[in-house]
Design a protein around this nucleic acid. Structure first.
Lengths: 239, 239
DNA sequence: GTCTATAGCCGGATAGAC
DNA sequence: GTCTATCCGGCTATAGAC
Protein backbone atom coordinates (compact mmCIF):
# COMPACT_ATOMS: atom_id res chain seq x y z
CA UNK A 1 0.00 0.00 0.00
CA UNK A 2 1.26 3.44 -0.87
CA UNK A 3 1.74 5.41 2.32
CA UNK A 4 3.35 8.50 0.82
CA UNK A 5 2.04 11.78 2.23
CA UNK A 6 -0.66 13.22 -0.06
CA UNK A 7 0.80 16.72 0.27
CA UNK A 8 3.58 18.56 2.08
CA UNK A 9 3.13 21.12 4.81
CA UNK A 10 4.17 23.93 2.45
CA UNK A 11 1.62 22.90 -0.13
CA UNK A 12 -1.06 22.82 2.55
CA UNK A 13 -0.23 26.25 3.90
CA UNK A 14 -0.35 27.76 0.42
CA UNK A 15 -3.74 26.21 -0.16
CA UNK A 16 -5.13 27.21 3.27
CA UNK A 17 -3.48 30.42 4.44
CA UNK A 18 -5.18 29.96 7.80
CA UNK A 19 -4.52 32.62 10.37
CA UNK A 20 -5.92 34.32 13.43
CA UNK A 21 -6.69 37.31 11.18
CA UNK A 22 -8.88 35.10 9.03
CA UNK A 23 -10.81 33.83 12.03
CA UNK A 24 -11.24 37.38 13.32
CA UNK A 25 -12.59 38.50 9.99
CA UNK A 26 -15.31 35.87 10.28
CA UNK A 27 -15.92 36.77 13.90
CA UNK A 28 -16.45 40.37 12.86
CA UNK A 29 -18.76 39.58 9.99
CA UNK A 30 -20.89 37.23 12.10
CA UNK A 31 -21.12 39.67 15.03
CA UNK A 32 -21.64 43.04 13.37
CA UNK A 33 -24.57 43.66 15.72
CA UNK A 34 -22.78 43.28 19.00
CA UNK A 35 -19.44 44.79 17.98
CA UNK A 36 -19.65 48.55 18.33
CA UNK A 37 -16.83 49.51 15.96
CA UNK A 38 -18.11 50.04 12.45
CA UNK A 39 -14.90 50.46 10.42
CA UNK A 40 -14.27 46.89 9.32
CA UNK A 41 -10.54 47.16 8.78
CA UNK A 42 -9.87 48.71 12.15
CA UNK A 43 -12.19 46.32 13.95
CA UNK A 44 -10.48 43.26 12.48
CA UNK A 45 -7.05 44.65 13.26
CA UNK A 46 -7.97 45.16 16.91
CA UNK A 47 -9.89 41.91 17.22
CA UNK A 48 -6.81 40.12 15.96
CA UNK A 49 -4.63 41.87 18.48
CA UNK A 50 -7.06 40.99 21.26
CA UNK A 51 -7.36 37.35 20.23
CA UNK A 52 -3.61 36.89 19.92
CA UNK A 53 -3.13 38.42 23.34
CA UNK A 54 -5.85 36.28 24.90
CA UNK A 55 -4.22 33.15 23.54
CA UNK A 56 -0.79 34.25 24.67
CA UNK A 57 -1.81 35.10 28.23
CA UNK A 58 -4.13 32.12 28.62
CA UNK A 59 -1.34 29.80 27.57
CA UNK A 60 0.38 30.30 30.88
CA UNK A 61 -2.39 29.93 33.42
CA UNK A 62 -5.66 29.59 31.59
CA UNK A 63 -8.39 31.94 30.46
CA UNK A 64 -9.92 32.32 33.91
CA UNK A 65 -6.71 33.52 35.46
CA UNK A 66 -6.28 36.20 32.81
CA UNK A 67 -7.62 39.53 34.05
CA UNK A 68 -8.99 42.12 31.67
CA UNK A 69 -6.35 44.46 33.05
CA UNK A 70 -3.67 42.04 31.83
CA UNK A 71 -5.41 41.87 28.50
CA UNK A 72 -5.74 45.64 28.33
CA UNK A 73 -2.08 46.23 29.07
CA UNK A 74 -0.67 43.65 26.66
CA UNK A 75 -3.08 44.35 23.83
CA UNK A 76 -2.47 48.10 24.24
CA UNK A 77 -6.18 48.84 24.30
CA UNK A 78 -7.87 50.44 27.28
CA UNK A 79 -10.48 48.63 29.34
CA UNK A 80 -13.12 50.84 27.81
CA UNK A 81 -11.96 50.12 24.28
CA UNK A 82 -12.04 46.38 24.88
CA UNK A 83 -15.71 46.55 25.73
CA UNK A 84 -16.45 47.83 22.23
CA UNK A 85 -15.46 44.44 20.91
CA UNK A 86 -17.32 42.21 23.34
CA UNK A 87 -19.94 42.54 26.02
CA UNK A 88 -18.20 40.28 28.52
CA UNK A 89 -15.05 38.28 28.92
CA UNK A 90 -17.04 35.10 28.72
CA UNK A 91 -18.78 36.10 25.51
CA UNK A 92 -15.46 36.73 23.81
CA UNK A 93 -14.29 33.22 24.65
CA UNK A 94 -17.49 31.93 23.18
CA UNK A 95 -17.08 33.88 19.91
CA UNK A 96 -13.52 32.67 19.49
CA UNK A 97 -14.54 29.11 20.11
CA UNK A 98 -17.56 28.88 17.86
CA UNK A 99 -15.91 30.65 14.96
CA UNK A 100 -12.59 28.86 15.17
CA UNK A 101 -14.14 25.42 15.33
CA UNK A 102 -16.44 26.04 12.40
CA UNK A 103 -13.51 27.01 10.22
CA UNK A 104 -11.40 24.04 11.25
CA UNK A 105 -14.21 21.56 10.75
CA UNK A 106 -14.94 22.95 7.30
CA UNK A 107 -11.34 22.54 6.16
CA UNK A 108 -11.14 19.00 7.52
CA UNK A 109 -14.32 17.92 5.75
CA UNK A 110 -13.34 19.44 2.43
CA UNK A 111 -9.90 17.92 2.46
CA UNK A 112 -11.10 14.43 3.29
CA UNK A 113 -13.81 14.48 0.65
CA UNK A 114 -11.14 15.02 -2.00
CA UNK A 115 -9.73 11.51 -1.38
CA UNK A 116 -10.63 8.83 -3.95
CA UNK A 117 -10.82 5.86 -1.57
CA UNK A 118 -10.79 5.13 2.16
CA UNK A 119 -7.06 4.77 2.38
CA UNK A 120 -6.49 8.06 0.59
CA UNK A 121 -9.11 9.77 2.71
CA UNK A 122 -7.44 8.49 5.88
CA UNK A 123 -4.05 9.78 4.76
CA UNK A 124 -5.56 13.13 3.87
CA UNK A 125 -7.44 13.31 7.17
CA UNK A 126 -4.34 12.65 9.24
CA UNK A 127 -2.19 15.09 7.24
CA UNK A 128 -4.79 17.82 7.19
CA UNK A 129 -5.32 17.63 10.93
CA UNK A 130 -1.61 17.66 11.67
CA UNK A 131 -0.89 20.53 9.27
CA UNK A 132 -3.84 22.53 10.55
CA UNK A 133 -2.77 22.11 14.13
CA UNK A 134 0.77 22.96 13.11
CA UNK A 135 -0.16 26.23 11.43
CA UNK A 136 -2.37 27.42 14.29
CA UNK A 137 -1.11 25.27 17.13
CA UNK A 138 -1.75 27.92 19.77
CA UNK A 139 -5.41 28.00 18.84
CA UNK A 140 -5.74 24.22 18.97
CA UNK A 141 -4.09 24.18 22.37
CA UNK A 142 -6.28 27.00 23.59
CA UNK A 143 -9.48 25.30 22.43
CA UNK A 144 -8.49 22.03 24.03
CA UNK A 145 -7.70 23.60 27.37
CA UNK A 146 -10.58 26.04 27.55
CA UNK A 147 -13.40 23.84 26.29
CA UNK A 148 -14.52 23.34 29.86
CA UNK A 149 -14.50 27.10 30.50
CA UNK A 150 -17.47 27.57 28.21
CA UNK A 151 -20.86 28.12 29.76
CA UNK A 152 -22.66 24.76 30.06
CA UNK A 153 -25.26 25.83 27.49
CA UNK A 154 -22.57 26.68 24.94
CA UNK A 155 -20.69 23.53 25.78
CA UNK A 156 -23.59 21.46 24.59
CA UNK A 157 -24.11 23.51 21.45
CA UNK A 158 -20.48 23.23 20.41
CA UNK A 159 -19.68 19.62 19.67
CA UNK A 160 -16.09 19.59 20.77
CA UNK A 161 -13.38 19.45 18.15
CA UNK A 162 -12.36 16.39 20.04
CA UNK A 163 -15.50 14.44 19.39
CA UNK A 164 -15.78 15.76 15.85
CA UNK A 165 -12.31 14.52 14.96
CA UNK A 166 -12.96 11.13 16.44
CA UNK A 167 -16.25 10.70 14.63
CA UNK A 168 -14.71 11.64 11.29
CA UNK A 169 -12.04 8.99 11.66
CA UNK A 170 -14.40 6.38 12.98
CA UNK A 171 -16.64 6.68 9.92
CA UNK A 172 -13.64 6.69 7.66
CA UNK A 173 -12.33 3.46 9.17
CA UNK A 174 -15.72 1.76 9.03
CA UNK A 175 -16.15 2.66 5.37
CA UNK A 176 -12.73 1.18 4.71
CA UNK A 177 -13.68 -2.06 6.44
CA UNK A 178 -16.90 -2.32 4.46
CA UNK A 179 -15.21 -1.97 1.10
CA UNK A 180 -12.41 -4.32 2.09
CA UNK A 181 -9.57 -1.82 2.18
CA UNK A 182 -9.04 -2.17 5.91
CA UNK A 183 -9.13 -4.93 8.45
CA UNK A 184 -9.50 -3.53 11.96
CA UNK A 185 -10.26 -5.49 15.12
CA UNK A 186 -11.42 -2.44 17.12
CA UNK A 187 -12.40 0.42 14.80
CA UNK A 188 -13.82 2.57 17.57
CA UNK A 189 -10.76 2.28 19.79
CA UNK A 190 -8.54 2.74 16.76
CA UNK A 191 -10.26 6.01 15.84
CA UNK A 192 -9.88 7.10 19.42
CA UNK A 193 -6.16 6.27 19.31
CA UNK A 194 -5.65 8.22 16.08
CA UNK A 195 -7.29 11.22 17.67
CA UNK A 196 -5.11 10.93 20.78
CA UNK A 197 -1.97 10.77 18.66
CA UNK A 198 -3.07 13.77 16.58
CA UNK A 199 -3.69 15.71 19.76
CA UNK A 200 -0.27 14.95 21.11
CA UNK A 201 1.25 16.89 18.23
CA UNK A 202 -0.28 20.19 19.24
CA UNK A 203 -0.57 19.64 22.97
CA UNK A 204 3.12 18.82 23.29
CA UNK A 205 4.33 21.14 20.56
CA UNK A 206 7.39 22.28 22.52
CA UNK A 207 8.56 18.72 23.01
CA UNK A 208 8.61 17.84 19.34
CA UNK A 209 10.09 21.21 18.57
CA UNK A 210 12.98 20.63 20.98
CA UNK A 211 13.65 17.28 19.42
CA UNK A 212 13.58 18.83 15.96
CA UNK A 213 10.90 16.51 14.65
CA UNK A 214 9.12 18.09 11.68
CA UNK A 215 5.40 17.80 11.13
CA UNK A 216 6.03 15.64 8.06
CA UNK A 217 8.21 13.26 10.05
CA UNK A 218 5.49 12.96 12.63
CA UNK A 219 2.87 12.45 9.93
CA UNK A 220 4.93 9.63 8.44
CA UNK A 221 5.46 8.01 11.81
CA UNK A 222 1.80 8.23 12.73
CA UNK A 223 0.60 6.85 9.41
CA UNK A 224 2.90 3.86 9.64
CA UNK A 225 2.06 3.29 13.28
CA UNK A 226 -1.64 3.22 12.48
CA UNK A 227 -1.39 1.23 9.25
CA UNK A 228 0.30 -1.66 11.03
CA UNK A 229 -3.02 -2.12 12.77
CA UNK A 230 -5.54 -1.58 10.01
CA UNK A 231 -4.04 -2.96 6.84
CA UNK A 232 -6.04 -5.68 5.16
CA UNK A 233 -3.29 -8.22 4.52
CA UNK A 234 -5.34 -10.14 1.97
CA UNK A 235 -5.78 -7.10 -0.23
CA UNK A 236 -2.07 -6.37 0.12
CA UNK A 237 -1.10 -9.79 -1.15
CA UNK A 238 -3.33 -9.40 -4.17
CA UNK A 239 -1.42 -6.34 -5.36
CA UNK B 1 4.82 -13.64 21.84
CA UNK B 2 2.62 -13.92 24.91
CA UNK B 3 0.62 -10.74 25.26
CA UNK B 4 -1.59 -11.81 28.16
CA UNK B 5 -2.04 -9.17 30.85
CA UNK B 6 0.40 -9.78 33.71
CA UNK B 7 -2.30 -9.04 36.29
CA UNK B 8 -5.94 -8.00 36.46
CA UNK B 9 -7.24 -4.71 37.77
CA UNK B 10 -8.61 -6.41 40.87
CA UNK B 11 -5.27 -8.00 41.67
CA UNK B 12 -3.58 -4.65 41.25
CA UNK B 13 -5.97 -2.81 43.54
CA UNK B 14 -5.52 -5.43 46.25
CA UNK B 15 -1.76 -5.07 45.98
CA UNK B 16 -1.81 -1.26 45.92
CA UNK B 17 -4.79 0.04 47.85
CA UNK B 18 -3.99 3.52 46.57
CA UNK B 19 -6.25 6.26 47.75
CA UNK B 20 -6.49 9.93 48.44
CA UNK B 21 -6.35 9.07 52.14
CA UNK B 22 -2.99 7.44 51.59
CA UNK B 23 -1.59 10.47 49.82
CA UNK B 24 -2.91 12.73 52.57
CA UNK B 25 -1.22 10.63 55.22
CA UNK B 26 2.09 11.21 53.48
CA UNK B 27 1.31 14.90 53.03
CA UNK B 28 0.71 15.17 56.75
CA UNK B 29 3.83 13.31 57.76
CA UNK B 30 6.03 15.36 55.43
CA UNK B 31 4.51 18.68 56.48
CA UNK B 32 4.18 18.36 60.25
CA UNK B 33 5.88 21.72 60.64
CA UNK B 34 3.55 23.82 58.56
CA UNK B 35 0.30 22.04 59.43
CA UNK B 36 -1.01 23.45 62.69
CA UNK B 37 -3.24 20.56 63.70
CA UNK B 38 -1.37 18.10 65.88
CA UNK B 39 -3.82 15.19 66.21
CA UNK B 40 -2.73 12.98 63.31
CA UNK B 41 -5.98 11.13 62.82
CA UNK B 42 -8.07 14.28 62.70
CA UNK B 43 -5.60 16.10 60.47
CA UNK B 44 -5.56 13.32 57.89
CA UNK B 45 -9.32 13.06 57.93
CA UNK B 46 -9.70 16.76 57.22
CA UNK B 47 -6.86 16.88 54.70
CA UNK B 48 -8.57 14.09 52.80
CA UNK B 49 -11.85 15.94 52.81
CA UNK B 50 -10.10 19.09 51.59
CA UNK B 51 -8.19 17.31 48.85
CA UNK B 52 -11.24 15.46 47.59
CA UNK B 53 -13.18 18.70 47.48
CA UNK B 54 -10.37 20.54 45.69
CA UNK B 55 -10.26 17.87 43.02
CA UNK B 56 -14.02 17.84 42.66
CA UNK B 57 -14.41 21.61 42.30
CA UNK B 58 -11.32 22.04 40.10
CA UNK B 59 -12.63 19.42 37.73
CA UNK B 60 -15.23 21.82 36.43
CA UNK B 61 -13.31 25.01 35.84
CA UNK B 62 -9.81 24.56 37.11
CA UNK B 63 -7.99 25.22 40.36
CA UNK B 64 -7.70 28.95 39.76
CA UNK B 65 -11.40 29.43 39.37
CA UNK B 66 -12.08 27.63 42.65
CA UNK B 67 -12.49 30.15 45.47
CA UNK B 68 -11.68 29.29 49.06
CA UNK B 69 -15.28 30.14 49.84
CA UNK B 70 -16.37 27.34 47.53
CA UNK B 71 -13.85 25.04 49.14
CA UNK B 72 -14.94 26.03 52.62
CA UNK B 73 -18.60 25.44 51.89
CA UNK B 74 -18.22 22.09 50.18
CA UNK B 75 -15.60 20.71 52.53
CA UNK B 76 -17.67 21.84 55.51
CA UNK B 77 -14.69 23.54 57.12
CA UNK B 78 -14.61 27.25 57.81
CA UNK B 79 -12.17 29.57 56.07
CA UNK B 80 -10.28 29.89 59.32
CA UNK B 81 -10.05 26.14 59.77
CA UNK B 82 -8.72 25.65 56.26
CA UNK B 83 -5.77 27.89 57.02
CA UNK B 84 -4.65 25.48 59.71
CA UNK B 85 -3.87 22.98 56.97
CA UNK B 86 -2.05 25.22 54.52
CA UNK B 87 -0.60 28.69 54.43
CA UNK B 88 -1.97 29.61 51.02
CA UNK B 89 -4.11 28.19 48.28
CA UNK B 90 -1.09 27.91 46.06
CA UNK B 91 0.95 26.04 48.65
CA UNK B 92 -1.76 23.42 49.01
CA UNK B 93 -1.69 22.74 45.28
CA UNK B 94 2.04 22.34 45.56
CA UNK B 95 1.80 19.86 48.43
CA UNK B 96 -0.77 17.76 46.60
CA UNK B 97 1.31 17.73 43.49
CA UNK B 98 4.69 16.86 44.96
CA UNK B 99 3.33 14.15 47.22
CA UNK B 100 1.03 12.58 44.68
CA UNK B 101 3.64 12.35 41.98
CA UNK B 102 6.24 10.83 44.27
CA UNK B 103 3.85 8.05 45.21
CA UNK B 104 2.83 7.33 41.64
CA UNK B 105 6.40 7.26 40.37
CA UNK B 106 7.42 4.91 43.14
CA UNK B 107 4.71 2.40 42.29
CA UNK B 108 5.50 2.54 38.57
CA UNK B 109 9.20 1.91 39.14
CA UNK B 110 8.63 -0.98 41.54
CA UNK B 111 6.15 -2.70 39.29
CA UNK B 112 8.32 -2.46 36.20
CA UNK B 113 11.41 -3.76 37.97
CA UNK B 114 9.53 -6.95 38.79
CA UNK B 115 9.44 -7.94 35.09
CA UNK B 116 11.91 -10.61 33.97
CA UNK B 117 12.60 -9.26 30.46
CA UNK B 118 11.88 -6.20 28.36
CA UNK B 119 8.63 -7.51 26.99
CA UNK B 120 7.35 -8.40 30.42
CA UNK B 121 8.47 -5.05 31.80
CA UNK B 122 6.65 -3.27 29.00
CA UNK B 123 3.44 -5.17 29.68
CA UNK B 124 3.75 -4.44 33.38
CA UNK B 125 4.47 -0.77 32.72
CA UNK B 126 1.43 -0.32 30.53
CA UNK B 127 -0.88 -2.21 32.88
CA UNK B 128 0.40 -0.51 36.00
CA UNK B 129 -0.04 2.93 34.52
CA UNK B 130 -3.54 2.18 33.28
CA UNK B 131 -4.63 0.58 36.55
CA UNK B 132 -3.11 3.39 38.60
CA UNK B 133 -4.85 6.02 36.53
CA UNK B 134 -8.05 4.00 36.76
CA UNK B 135 -8.00 3.77 40.54
CA UNK B 136 -7.26 7.46 41.05
CA UNK B 137 -8.31 8.89 37.72
CA UNK B 138 -9.46 12.18 39.18
CA UNK B 139 -6.01 12.80 40.58
CA UNK B 140 -4.31 11.99 37.30
CA UNK B 141 -6.65 14.34 35.50
CA UNK B 142 -6.11 17.04 38.08
CA UNK B 143 -2.33 16.77 37.89
CA UNK B 144 -2.37 16.91 34.13
CA UNK B 145 -4.58 19.97 33.98
CA UNK B 146 -3.00 21.90 36.83
CA UNK B 147 0.67 21.29 36.13
CA UNK B 148 0.89 24.72 34.60
CA UNK B 149 -0.74 26.30 37.65
CA UNK B 150 2.31 25.54 39.75
CA UNK B 151 4.70 28.36 40.54
CA UNK B 152 7.49 28.42 37.92
CA UNK B 153 10.08 27.43 40.56
CA UNK B 154 8.07 24.38 41.58
CA UNK B 155 7.37 23.54 37.98
CA UNK B 156 11.05 23.04 37.38
CA UNK B 157 11.54 21.01 40.53
CA UNK B 158 8.72 18.63 39.72
CA UNK B 159 9.58 16.68 36.61
CA UNK B 160 6.12 16.25 35.23
CA UNK B 161 4.50 12.86 35.42
CA UNK B 162 4.23 13.29 31.71
CA UNK B 163 7.96 13.39 31.07
CA UNK B 164 8.63 10.75 33.67
CA UNK B 165 6.27 8.29 32.02
CA UNK B 166 7.74 8.90 28.62
CA UNK B 167 11.32 8.43 29.82
CA UNK B 168 10.47 5.18 31.56
CA UNK B 169 9.00 3.75 28.37
CA UNK B 170 11.76 5.08 26.17
CA UNK B 171 14.43 3.33 28.24
CA UNK B 172 12.36 0.19 28.32
CA UNK B 173 12.02 0.12 24.55
CA UNK B 174 15.71 0.80 24.00
CA UNK B 175 16.70 -2.00 26.33
CA UNK B 176 14.42 -4.30 24.40
CA UNK B 177 16.04 -3.33 21.10
CA UNK B 178 19.51 -3.92 22.49
CA UNK B 179 18.77 -7.42 23.67
CA UNK B 180 16.90 -8.29 20.48
CA UNK B 181 13.41 -8.58 21.91
CA UNK B 182 12.09 -5.57 19.99
CA UNK B 183 12.57 -4.08 16.58
CA UNK B 184 11.45 -0.44 16.54
CA UNK B 185 12.04 2.09 13.78
CA UNK B 186 11.40 5.14 15.98
CA UNK B 187 11.77 4.25 19.68
CA UNK B 188 11.48 7.84 20.87
CA UNK B 189 8.30 8.55 18.94
CA UNK B 190 6.95 5.16 19.95
CA UNK B 191 7.47 5.90 23.64
CA UNK B 192 5.77 9.23 23.11
CA UNK B 193 2.83 7.47 21.44
CA UNK B 194 2.49 4.98 24.29
CA UNK B 195 2.36 7.85 26.75
CA UNK B 196 -0.27 9.68 24.70
CA UNK B 197 -2.44 6.56 24.58
CA UNK B 198 -2.05 5.97 28.32
CA UNK B 199 -3.09 9.57 28.96
CA UNK B 200 -6.19 9.23 26.84
CA UNK B 201 -7.50 6.66 29.27
CA UNK B 202 -7.69 9.04 32.21
CA UNK B 203 -8.20 12.30 30.33
CA UNK B 204 -11.23 10.93 28.52
CA UNK B 205 -12.48 8.73 31.32
CA UNK B 206 -16.13 9.61 30.74
CA UNK B 207 -15.93 8.61 27.09
CA UNK B 208 -14.68 5.09 27.76
CA UNK B 209 -17.07 4.80 30.63
CA UNK B 210 -20.05 5.66 28.42
CA UNK B 211 -18.96 3.08 25.89
CA UNK B 212 -18.57 0.49 28.63
CA UNK B 213 -14.97 -0.28 27.81
CA UNK B 214 -13.21 -1.77 30.83
CA UNK B 215 -9.66 -0.95 31.77
CA UNK B 216 -8.59 -4.47 30.92
CA UNK B 217 -10.13 -4.23 27.45
CA UNK B 218 -8.30 -0.99 26.88
CA UNK B 219 -5.07 -2.53 28.18
CA UNK B 220 -5.43 -5.39 25.75
CA UNK B 221 -6.17 -3.07 22.85
CA UNK B 222 -3.25 -0.80 23.66
CA UNK B 223 -0.78 -3.65 24.06
CA UNK B 224 -1.74 -5.17 20.72
CA UNK B 225 -1.73 -1.80 19.01
CA UNK B 226 1.77 -1.11 20.23
CA UNK B 227 3.16 -4.60 19.67
CA UNK B 228 2.28 -4.48 15.98
CA UNK B 229 4.95 -1.80 15.78
CA UNK B 230 7.72 -3.14 18.00
CA UNK B 231 7.71 -6.89 17.63
CA UNK B 232 10.94 -8.36 16.38
CA UNK B 233 9.63 -10.67 13.67
CA UNK B 234 12.85 -12.69 13.55
CA UNK B 235 12.65 -13.61 17.19
CA UNK B 236 8.98 -14.49 16.73
CA UNK B 237 9.74 -16.92 13.96
CA UNK B 238 12.32 -18.67 16.09
CA UNK B 239 9.71 -19.56 18.67
C1' DG C 1 -9.24 23.37 66.88
C1' DT C 2 -12.85 25.69 64.95
C1' DC C 3 -15.57 29.46 64.31
C1' DT C 4 -17.24 34.36 62.69
C1' DA C 5 -16.11 38.78 61.20
C1' DT C 6 -13.59 41.76 58.61
C1' DA C 7 -9.46 43.98 56.51
C1' DG C 8 -7.68 45.04 52.26
C1' DC C 9 -7.15 44.12 47.58
C1' DC C 10 -8.30 43.03 42.87
C1' DG C 11 -11.58 41.73 39.59
C1' DG C 12 -15.25 42.77 35.80
C1' DA C 13 -17.95 46.17 34.11
C1' DT C 14 -19.60 51.06 33.15
C1' DA C 15 -20.04 56.22 32.78
C1' DG C 16 -18.84 60.08 30.62
C1' DA C 17 -15.02 63.27 28.96
C1' DC C 18 -12.46 63.99 24.84
C1' DG D 1 -13.35 55.26 18.87
C1' DT D 2 -10.62 55.61 22.71
C1' DC D 3 -9.59 57.09 27.06
C1' DT D 4 -9.61 57.73 32.42
C1' DA D 5 -12.02 57.31 36.57
C1' DT D 6 -14.89 54.78 39.38
C1' DC D 7 -18.38 51.44 41.19
C1' DC D 8 -19.00 47.49 43.66
C1' DG D 9 -18.88 42.64 44.37
C1' DG D 10 -15.92 38.80 45.35
C1' DC D 11 -11.51 37.31 46.52
C1' DT D 12 -7.53 35.72 49.83
C1' DA D 13 -5.93 35.96 54.16
C1' DT D 14 -6.03 37.17 59.14
C1' DA D 15 -7.58 38.51 63.88
C1' DG D 16 -9.66 37.26 67.79
C1' DA D 17 -13.78 35.05 70.27
C1' DC D 18 -15.17 30.65 71.95
Amino acid sequence: MNLALPFTYKEFVLLHPLSIEGICKEIYQDNRNSIKIKKEELAIKNLTKIMKTVIKISHKQGFHAMSLRDLSRESELSMGALYNYFSSKEEFLNMMYIQGQALINKIMQESIRAGQNSSERLLRGICTHLYLSESISKIFYFFYMEAKSLKPEDQKKAITMEQFTENVFEELLKDGIQNGEFEIPYPLLTASAIKALLQDWYLKRYKYSERKISVEEYANFLIRFVYQNIENTNSKELK
